[in-house]
């Protein structure tokens, strides 16, 4: 309970900062649209034939946006000694991690929810199903967990912008693979049994795995 209250305090601080500045969500939204436009030129296909690659495009765009949002998770604290304040706060490191992770999760979910209908129009996605929503939620939990963890490391280095993707993408790839496969099934018309029996369990397993490992070793990230 103590842990949750501390985490919510940290998360609420980030949300309040974001509500006042709107820097992450606004920039990530525009960036997400640019990614789709660049894809359009890169693939050079007629809109109707995008269906087979649409889930992949969706998740590459989400992954890019994710790394952008994750970069901000801790760089925000660099100004005015925010990092010292955060580390000296009378909450455990687990609570700091969980709070940061919940904040990033909230930002990403908002961005994804706004962009999804836009993608649906621009990429001509056939359906928007509840299964897809669940897939996005689960995959974003994995994203936010791994991303927050590595953001904590990357922020302490000089080359933080490049180090975060190098660390983050390889580790989060299992989540991306499962998300792409599950989304492809969720977007298909017809029975969605494959989503429930194969890819959702895998997503849940990875989420659980990272949710156990990341807070456990996060305490070591901010020492020395």
């Amino acid at each position: 309970m103590e842990l949750l209250r501390g985490a919510l305090t940290v998360a609420w601080k980030d949300v309040r900062l974001e509500l006042r500045s709107r820097e992450v969500i606004a920039s990530a939204l525009v960036f997400g649209l640019i990614v789709v436009v660049v894809f359009n030129f890169g693939l050079n296909r007629s809109p109707g034939s995008l269906e087979p690659v649409a889930p992949g495009l969706l998740w590459v765009a989400y992954a890019f946006i994710g790394v952008l949002a994750m970069n901000r998770a801790f760089t925000r604290e660099l100004e005015n000694g925010g990092m010292d304040g955060l580390l000296l706060a009378p909450v455990s490191r687990d609570a700091v991690f969980l709070g940061k992770m919940l904040g990033s999760l909230a930002f990403m979910l908002v961005i994804e929810a706004i962009l999804l209908p836009v993608f649906a129009v621009m990429l001509d996605l056939p359906t928007l199903s509840p299964a897809l929503g669940l897939v996005i939620l689960l995959a974003t939990v994995g994203f936010a967990t791994v991303g927050t963890f590595f953001s904590g490391i990357a922020v302490q280095t000089r080359s933080r912008e490049i180090l975060l993707p190098i660390l983050f993408f390889p580790v989060v790839v299992p989540v991306i693979i499962a998300a792409v496969e599950a989304s492809a099934l969720a977007l298909q018309s017809g029975p969605m049994t494959g989503v429930w029996t194969r890819w959702l369990p895998l997503l849940i397993v990875f989420d659980a795995l990272y949710l156990v490992i990341c807070p456990w070793i996060f305490g070591y990230v901010f020492e020395g």
């Binding site: 180090l163 660390l167 070591y220 020492e223």
Partner: peptide, 27 residues
């Protein structure tokens, strides 16, 4: 191996690479 080079201090390099090694083993 890169994180060892990028870490500001050798001490941080050792700790961070240890945590990357642990989480990386998931693959």
């Amino acid at each position: 191996l890169m994180i060892r080079q990028y870490a500001p201090t050798p001490q941080q390099g050792r700790t961070w690479s240890a945590v990357v090694g642990i989480i990386g083993f998931v693959d």
